[in-house]
């Protein structure tokens, strides 16, 4: 357990990607950054760029147009990386399930590590999800059992 592994858990930079959500979840994701919730306490920073991200936060169901983009962005994130699917839509397609243009949940395209349920997911739930992802990450890098 080296300093690098410890740091990996303490400094998750997120990138937020919105598929074809109703924007409800997106607003909740951004609410996490406000003084009330202040996720920067956990070293979490919102990045606009996959190359700097560690955690990909996806909202909304994947449609045929965004699938390619989502995949491209995921590929551009350097390892190690985590994916969090936020909201019912991102998990399964939610209310958009079976629409003509919808593929389904994020896991149709990417390996998802954490699902955060809710429509919309509450900021507290999202923070819980991030913490869960970090625990998973710390197991993966060998910091915790």
């Amino acid at each position: 357990m080296g300093i690098i592994q410890v740091s990996q858990v303490k400094s998750p930079w997120i990138m937020h990607f919105c598929n074809s959500s109703c924007n409800g979840c997106d607003i909740e994701v951004l609410a996490c950054l406000t003084p009330l919730y202040d996720v920067e306490r956990f070293g979490l920073v919102n990045m606009g760029n996959p190359k700097h991200a560690d955690v990909l936060v996806v909202t909304g169901p994947v449609n045929y147009r965004t699938a390619r983009v989502l995949k491209n962005l995921y590929d551009q994130i350097p390892d190690p990386k985590m994916v969090i699917a936020v909201g019912a839509c991102a998990a399964t397609g939610g209310v958009f399930h079976n629409c003509y243009n919808i593929l389904g949940g994020v896991d149709k395209v990417l390996p998802v590590d954490v699902y955060v349920p809710g429509c919309a997911a509450r900021p507290e739930a999202i923070i819980d999800g991030v913490v869960l992802a970090l625990q998973k990450l710390s197991k993966a890098v060998g910091v915790a059992k």
Binding site: P50, K51, V69, L70, N72, Q76
Partner: peptide
């Protein structure tokens, strides 16, 4: 890797 072009 390819450059960042908003995933496009």
């Amino acid at each position: 890797r390819p450059v960042y072009l908003c995933g496009e």
